[in-house]
Simulated scan of single mutants.
Amino acid sequence: MLDRGGTGRMRCATALLTGLLLVPGLAGCEYREAGDPPASAPARQISSSPTASPTTNRAMLDVEAKNFTELQQRLGVASGTLLLEDSVAVGAPGVWFQKNAMVKTAGTYTVTAACVGGPDVRLSLNQDPRTGATPVQLVLDCSQVTSQLVQLQAGYVSAALVQFNPGSAPWTGAVAGVRITADN
């Protein structure tokens, strides 16, 4: 039997109203994996300028700022044509960054990287394997600057920095930076 009265419209309106009341309540729900930072911690974003860790601890932010200053001193001024340069805080579990750059001319490039405030950081350089490029993996000892010549092919290169053992020392204030230059 076809309902020509208001009963069908009333059911539809009730269902719509119920849905509208449930949606705001569900908007506050969150799903986290074990070990994820608390919801109050802002998400890390890749940036071309140094960024602080997602902590509100003023003393830790001061440590990071001091470490960024030391990192810039260690890396010094770029010599040659700059292809890629970035630095980031890596002193917390799950904090890392990745940055891409376009290699216009295949050849030998200098990779310079350093870290301050932690025991070590891993640097990965990758290119499309179809170019014949070999991935580069370096473990940076934070007591020194690492510099290495690498062969890059034309195309994108991806550089990633991550704390080598992220569970070992959370919220340390550790920072890391990488620079890729072409010799002129």
Rank of each mutant, 00 (worst) to 15 (best):
T7L: 13
G8S: 13
M10V: 13
C12H: 13
T14I: 14
L16A: 15
L16H: 12
T18I: 08
L20E: 06
L21E: 06
P24S: 00
G25Y: 10
A27C: 13
G28P: 07
E30Y: 15
Y31W: 13
A34H: 04
P37D: 11
S40W: 14
A43M: 02
S47E: 12
P50C: 02
N57K: 10
M60S: 15
D62V: 00
A65K: 12
K66M: 11
L71G: 00
V77Q: 12
A78P: 06
S79A: 14
S79F: 07
G80K: 01
T81E: 07
L82Y: 04
L82G: 05
E85M: 00
D86Y: 05
D86P: 08
V88T: 12
V88K: 09
V90Q: 01
G91N: 09
G91F: 05
G94A: 05
G94L: 06
G94V: 02
F97H: 15
Q98D: 14
K99P: 01
K99W: 01
N100L: 10
A101W: 02
A101P: 10
M102F: 09
T105I: 05
A106Q: 14
G107A: 04
T108K: 15
T108C: 06
T108D: 15
T108Y: 08
T112H: 01
A113M: 08
A113K: 05
A114D: 05
C115T: 04
V116H: 07
V116C: 05
G118A: 07
P119W: 04
L123Y: 06
S124Y: 10
Q127R: 02
Q127D: 07
P129M: 05
A133I: 03
A133T: 14
T134W: 06
T134G: 11
V136L: 12
Q137I: 15
V139Q: 08
D141A: 10
C142R: 11
T146E: 14
T146V: 07
L149G: 14
V150M: 11
Q151A: 15
G155A: 08
Y156A: 11
V157I: 03
S158K: 12
S158Q: 15
A160I: 00
L161K: 11
L161I: 07
Q163A: 11
F164S: 07
F164C: 03
N165C: 07
G167I: 00
A169K: 04
T172V: 03
A176V: 08
V178H: 01
I180R: 00
T181D: 00
A182R: 11
N184L: 14
